[in-house]
Design a protein around this nucleic acid. Sequence first.
DNA 1: GCCGTTTTCGGCCCGACTGTTTTCAGTCG
Length: 565
Amino acid sequence: MATEISNRGIASRLLLLSELLEITGDNVFKIRAFYRAADIIERSNSPISQLNIYNLTLVPGIGPAIAKKVREIVETGTCNELEVLRAMVPPTLLELLNLEGVGPKTIAVLWKKMNIQSIDDLERAATGRRIRSLKGFGEKKEQGFLRSIALYRSAGGRMNRLEAEAVINKLAGSFAPGTWVVAGSYRRGKSTIGDIDIVTTGSPLVINPELQHRVDEIIDEGDRKTSVRVLGQRVDIRFTREPQLGSMLIYLTGSKEFNIRLREIAIGSGRKVNEYGVQARADGTLHEFSTEKEMFSFLGLQEIPPELRENQGEIELAGRFQLPQLINPSDIKGDLHVHSNWSDGSLTLDQIAEKGEALGYTYILCSDHSASLGITHGLDEEKLQQQAHEIERVNRTGRTCTLLHGIEVDILANGSLGLPDRVLAGLDLVIASVHSGFKEDRDTMTRRVIMALDNENVDIIGHPTGRLLGKRPSFEIDMSRIIDSARETKTSLECNASPWRLDLDADDIRNSTKNGVRISIGTDTHQEDEFLHMPHGITIARRGWCSTVNILNSLSLQELLDWVS
DNA sequence: GCCGTTTTCGGCCCGACTGTTTTCAGTCG
């Protein structure tokens, strides 16, 4: 059997098609249709390659033309229109789309009038001051191109949440306390953030000058909006007034798809939604909202938590007042992934129990590495037995937080585990994780993890895709098979709260809980301050539509022990 | 190209800011 093309594979070809159509100047609505279809296919949790033409057209956003192209891609790996465009447009031209301030129209003109085909070509032409001779281009554009090229070459990509917080902290002094809110993808709880968006009720007359000496660069400056660069990252600041704060927050929190959907709905009832409020199209009267809740209510919607605003069905549910009650920090009863100084952590077991008590937890799973992983001073059978005695001693000291004795056992290359079953059977909870052999192919890796799932001693699969944000991509793994197997074996999948992992991601979490798989949130703490990463994990779980019933560590200690047995 | 209890044709979210212009196109979010 030939390998089926993945949803991502289909989506990437449609995306390439829409980018090529942009440069060749095709109808913008047609381009958007391709772009939307690519997004829908990428996010779908069932294999699109198995749908026939008719079933494809039943997917919202896919019509007869795109359905035909998808089938062509499934059967041949590409489609005719894509190949025609690829033969026409130099491939290096697409890279120019990554430059800030450079869009498809600009690229088309540079290509057709000056035969500029790549970033290097553009740099040479701008340095040689040749571009200013083109109609519609001047000296400032030329300099802007050179700045964008330098920025693109030095860019470190998207920020993780800690890096975003560093940028925010650098600017915090520009605003009076209580007059500003971080919106955008940071507020929606995304695991990586492209730029920072801030809404403030402060005056631009005060804040714009304040920003001057805190930023690397002012990109745009205005009375309604100012954009700056801080620590190499873009920050957009929108100025508003208290009576309009609600609509501005909704607007700047997004997502883009969410905003578009909200506005489409408003059009249906003769209204216009923008960042200033809701306007009646008939007479132009503007309704203002100081809170988001008031504006949602005015539109006939339940208040939608920022983490859900992705146009993934939440708006329709909000219209029926049927949004899920999302998990909250106060629902978390304990941390299910902590390392002590018995392996590669820095805290003693006593310190961990003390910290757990201070955080209001009723339990913490002490899950050190197994001995198979040489670099982290893992525990063998003997050390594990000694640790058991020490945990018993700590648990007798009368703290309100109980230490559970567990392990983070390695899933080895052949799918077996780093410790024998009889050892694992004696522990309270077992996390099994992949820490080596990331380069295996998709099928091998999937079977490795499924073997671990089939082991009756394994309760949780730790960081199931192995990614390190910005450093190491997920390894190849068929998550739908993993989720099926987790359901059958009643195993939990981890939402690792470390800001460098945040793995599983929100889409996989939502697919897991739809299938009845419980999510375990663990901080993977190695040193004291990492206990504070729990909220990052909760945020991702909220993005995955999790209620308390979906979260393993919202169970009480007794319920958790019952679940294990 | 997609879509439809206003529509099967004619719409398709909305506004800020810049640079290059004498009124607007392009880009961005």
